[in-house]
């Protein structure tokens, strides 16, 4: 089990007037090679949760295990944990600082004390993985476009060659095409065998890419399971300000109107086929 969280509780600024419970008895487990979605709005505790997963924060009560190692123990080597669990924050492009793209991406590997040759190879690999041409390597990160900057920042984390990658709203603020490309990029990383945890507001995005979802609300896990299992709670999700994908809504409405549609459909392809099966009985239904 690469990541295992048990009974995690985090209180902000205890004993002050600002005291707030950001996480309350949160437990979750993530298996090797999964693509996990974490959903919830601002203040739901998702950002607090992810900084616990690589030991940037620790709280009690509660334990976090990464590959069986308890992050709360004093003797745990957190640098080793951070090389295993890569973390990409929201708007990561605002954390670039080096003169050249190459140097910025090399920051992580250099902190790991790797040889220059190894660093060079990793930088080239990481830039290729995020789909940036090698000729940006010598450019200043500050002269790139917003979308390119974000890719550089993600490359900076990938260059550590983590076996798990956590991303906080990787597509925030991008235009629709940029959004699609970013999500495909992450899917590409996942396809190489990296376990991915993606925090998102978009049910459409997590529905399309994730194997399992955790919905956080007020510091607690409200629902979890496959997208189909989670999207069944359409009304309750709406109450806490989250929407299920439009196709999931449509499928449920059609079922109520007498269409023969199995429960839990939410992908455009599946819903499209189900509708065709209903309306053109006999003939083959493909979308």
């Amino acid at each position: 089990m690469p990541i295992e969280v048990k009974g995690l509780t985090h209180v902000y600024m205890p004993g002050t007037p600002f005291e707030a419970r950001a996480l309350n008895d949160v437990s979750l487990s993530i298996r090797d090679g999964e693509f996990i979605g974490i959903i919830g709005h601002t203040g739901s505790g998702k950002s607090t949760l992810i900084v616990h997963l690589n030991g940037l924060e620790s709280s009690s009560p509660g334990v976090v295990f990464v590959n069986g190692v308890d992050l709360g123990l004093k003797e745990t080597d957190l640098i080793a944990i951070r090389r295993t669990v890569g973390l990409v924050f929201q708007y990561p492009e605002y954390q670039l600082f080096e003169e050249t793209v190459e140097k910025d991406v090399a920051f992580g590997p250099r902190n790991l004390g790797l040889s220059e040759d190894e660093i060079k190879a990793r930088v080239a690999d990481a830039l290729r993985m995020v789909g940036l041409p090698q000729d940006v390597a010598g450019k200043s990160p500050f002269e790139l476009s917003g979308g390119q900057k974000r890719r550089v920042a993600i490359a900076g984390v990938l260059a550590m060659q983590p076996s798990m990658l956590i991303l906080d709203e990787p597509a925030a603020g991008l235009d629709p095409a940029g959004r699609r490309e970013m999500l495909e990029l992450i899917k590409g990383v996942h396809d190489t065998g990296v376990t991915v945890v993606m925090v998102s507001h978009s049910m459409d995005d997590v529905g399309r890419y994730c194997d399992r979802l955790y919905v956080l609300n007020r510091g607690e896990i409200a629902w979890y399971g496959t997208p189909a299992e989670v999207f069944i709670h359409e009304e309750q999700l709406h109450e806490i300000g989250l929407d299920v994908p439009e196709c999931a809504k449509l499928a449920r409405r059609l079922r109520k109107s007498g269409f023969d549609i199995p429960e839990g459909l939410y992908r455009t392809d599946d819903v499209c086929e189900a509708i065709l099966r209903n309306l053109r009985k006999g003939s083959d239904a493909t979308c």
């Binding site: 940037l56 920051f107 984390v157 550590m160």
Partner: peptide, 16 residues
């Protein structure tokens, strides 16, 4: 707040 976030992000890349 921003300083706190940047610090965490660089720590995640192994900064000390």
């Amino acid at each position: 707040d921003e300083a706190d976030k940047i610090m965490k992000a660089q720590k995640a890349r192994g900064a000390d």
